[in-house]
Amino acid sequence: MRAIIIDDEPHCISSLKYDINLFCPEVEVIDACHNGHEGISSIKKNDPDLVFLDIEMPAMNGLQMLDQLGGNIPFQLVFTTAYDKFAAQAFRLSAVDYLLKPIDTHDLMDAVSRVKLRLNRDVSRQFDNLKYNFGRPFAEQRVAFPHRDGYDFVNVKDIAYCRADGAYTTVTMADGKSTLLSKSLGEVTEMLPVKLFERIHHSTLVNIQFITQFIKRDGGYVVMGDGVKLAVSRSKKDRILSLLGLERW
Rank of each mutant, 00 (worst) to 15 (best):
S184A: 14
A88H: 12
V206L: 04
L108P: 03
I73E: 08
D31M: 01
M1V: 02
G135S: 07
L196H: 04
E9I: 12
S124Y: 04
S235D: 07
V156G: 07
F127E: 08
E56V: 03
R136H: 12
E187K: 07
S233Q: 12
S178E: 12
T81N: 01
A32L: 00
S124W: 04
V171Q: 09
H37L: 14
L53Q: 10
Q209A: 14
R2L: 03
I20R: 03
F153Y: 13
I55P: 02
F52Q: 01
Q64I: 00
K183M: 14
D7I: 07
D238M: 09
V194P: 08
F23S: 10
K237A: 12
L66P: 03
N207H: 15
A174E: 05
A174T: 00
G245Y: 05
N46K: 05
S42Y: 01
A95F: 06
G176P: 05
I200G: 00
L99I: 11
Y98H: 02
G36Y: 05
H106G: 14
D149N: 09
R125W: 12
Y98R: 02
T80D: 00
V96D: 13
F197M: 02
K177W: 06
V188Q: 05
H201N: 05
R234V: 14
S41K: 10
E190L: 13
L108F: 10
T81P: 02
C162T: 11
I13Q: 05
T81L: 01
K44A: 15
L50R: 03
D238N: 06
K17G: 06
R248N: 15
L246P: 07
Q64T: 00
V222W: 05
L77T: 08
K236C: 09
R217C: 04
Y98S: 03
A88G: 01
S178T: 13
S14K: 14
N35G: 05
N129L: 03
I200Q: 02
K229F: 10
P102H: 09
I20S: 08
R217I: 06
F145D: 09
F197A: 06
D149R: 06
G227R: 07
K195Q: 11
K116S: 13
T169P: 00
G220W: 02
H202A: 04
G227W: 08
F91Y: 14
D158R: 09
A231F: 12
L230W: 07
D165F: 10
G39E: 04
G225Q: 10
E190M: 12
T189N: 09
H106T: 15
E9P: 05
K85F: 13
H11Y: 15
T189I: 06
T81G: 08
I30E: 02
Q213F: 15
N46C: 13
L230I: 02
K236V: 06
A90P: 08
A111I: 13
I73G: 13
T170N: 12
G166T: 09
D165K: 01
V156I: 14
V123W: 01
I5G: 03
G219F: 07
G39C: 11
R136M: 14
D122W: 10
A111F: 07
L93S: 08
N35K: 03
P58V: 02
G225M: 15
L69A: 15
K101A: 14
A95V: 14
G176M: 07
H201E: 09
A82K: 04
T172K: 04
S184V: 15
N129G: 13
V194C: 15
G62M: 00
F138L: 12
T105Q: 11
V188T: 08
G150H: 06
K85M: 13
R148G: 12
S41N: 04
N21V: 09
K216T: 15
